[in-house]
Amino acid sequence: MRHYNQKDWYELNRDPCSRIETIRAHFTGHAYDPHWHDSYLIGVTEQGVQQFKCRAKQQVCVPGTSFLLDPEEIHDGTAPSEDGFTYRMLFISPELFQQRIRQLFPKVPDNFEFRVNKTLSQDNLLSASISSAFAAIHYQEPKIIQDACLDQMMKQLTEHMFWRKTTEQHTDSVNIALLTQEILHANLNVNIGLTEIAETLKVNRFHLTRSFKAIFGLAPHAYLIQLRLVRARELLAHGENPADVANKLCFSDQSHMGRWFKRCYRFTPAEYQRRTFIL
């Protein structure tokens, strides 16, 4: 089902088995404020020019170009020309992504993870495999076709990714940032303040903020909003009432949560729920 808003439109689906979300959309002007997702983003620009800032660089994605983002990579989105841009994209959870990758590389140690090498790619085989996987999932082809298309896409993706160790030695500032991240994840449902976090870690809150932003690209409060939005999408997809979700995740009210949804995703919580609700 398409949602229309003047010149802009989007189609949003969520596969009931794999929980892969797919979106095909056309946007003009400003598309998204800076935000991140907890999933890998794998997509192709179909028409127009898609422009977004990611990895401290302005990325320009033209038709036929693939774009690949790791979980929690901050990005925005805009259309530099009046005709806007159209793209198709899959959101794949890290768990499912690693599971499918490990089927291709069964001997990789557990303390490694797969990460994107470059954000943009002109590899035609990769673009074709992404489009095929998108179509199979988005339009609910038989599961055997979905599996075949996803496997082919994963094989092509391995040419554009690398293994990274997940256990590394860290400096004090990095440790502060990582401990702050743990506290934020543990307090999605608590109206926690920055002073409380700094007191827990016994550090100056300004030093905490600088350390956190240097690692994650966002201040702690902005990162917590993103965490709550990700959790909100999950709860909404499972049928929870938007007002209850807003209250549970410490938004001041449903309208407050809705404003953040529109800024980051271009749709409201109710619109998202109508297209992704899992029975």
Results as ranks from 00 to 15, higher is better:
residue 206 F to A: 09
residue 97 F to Q: 03
residue 195 T to E: 12
residue 116 V to Y: 02
residue 231 R to T: 06
residue 127 S to A: 15
residue 145 I to S: 07
residue 92 I to E: 08
residue 73 E to C: 08
residue 167 T to G: 03
residue 227 L to A: 01
residue 229 L to A: 05
residue 215 I to L: 14
residue 169 Q to Y: 07
residue 84 G to P: 07
residue 188 L to R: 14
residue 239 G to M: 08
residue 261 F to G: 13
residue 29 G to H: 06
residue 56 A to D: 15
residue 119 T to C: 13
residue 186 A to G: 07
residue 220 P to M: 11
residue 4 Y to K: 11
residue 137 I to V: 14
residue 195 T to Q: 14
residue 167 T to I: 13
residue 50 Q to V: 00
residue 1 M to D: 11
residue 176 I to R: 07
residue 72 E to V: 01
residue 40 Y to S: 03
residue 18 S to F: 12
residue 130 I to N: 04
residue 163 W to R: 08
residue 36 W to V: 03
residue 97 F to Y: 14
residue 75 H to R: 14
residue 64 G to Q: 08
residue 216 F to W: 13
residue 241 N to P: 00
residue 69 L to F: 11
residue 194 L to V: 14
residue 118 K to F: 02
residue 26 H to K: 15
residue 45 T to Q: 11
residue 37 H to L: 06
residue 157 L to D: 06
residue 215 I to S: 02
residue 18 S to W: 12
residue 15 D to I: 05
residue 224 L to E: 04
residue 201 L to K: 06
residue 72 E to Y: 14
residue 86 T to M: 05
residue 61 C to R: 06
residue 64 G to D: 09
residue 9 W to I: 02
residue 47 Q to M: 11
residue 179 L to F: 02
residue 56 A to K: 15
residue 96 L to T: 00
residue 136 A to Y: 03
residue 116 V to K: 01
residue 250 C to Q: 15
residue 276 T to P: 09
residue 64 G to A: 05
residue 243 A to I: 04
residue 50 Q to T: 00
residue 261 F to Y: 15
residue 259 R to C: 08
residue 62 V to F: 08
residue 138 H to K: 09
residue 166 T to V: 13
residue 10 Y to V: 01
residue 241 N to Y: 13
residue 143 K to S: 09
residue 121 S to W: 05
residue 164 R to F: 01
residue 277 F to V: 14
residue 4 Y to T: 04
residue 130 I to W: 07
residue 181 Q to D: 10
residue 168 E to Q: 15
residue 196 E to K: 10
residue 160 H to D: 08
residue 9 W to R: 07
residue 173 S to N: 15
residue 156 Q to D: 03
residue 23 I to R: 14
residue 223 Y to K: 12
residue 170 H to C: 06
residue 116 V to S: 01
residue 70 D to Y: 03
residue 92 I to Q: 12
residue 70 D to G: 02
residue 204 N to D: 15
residue 24 R to D: 00
residue 141 E to T: 05
residue 56 A to E: 13
residue 3 H to D: 04
residue 78 T to F: 08
residue 99 Q to N: 12
residue 78 T to Y: 09
residue 177 A to H: 02
residue 21 E to G: 11
residue 20 I to C: 07
residue 30 H to A: 12
residue 40 Y to V: 02
residue 63 P to C: 05
residue 104 L to Q: 06
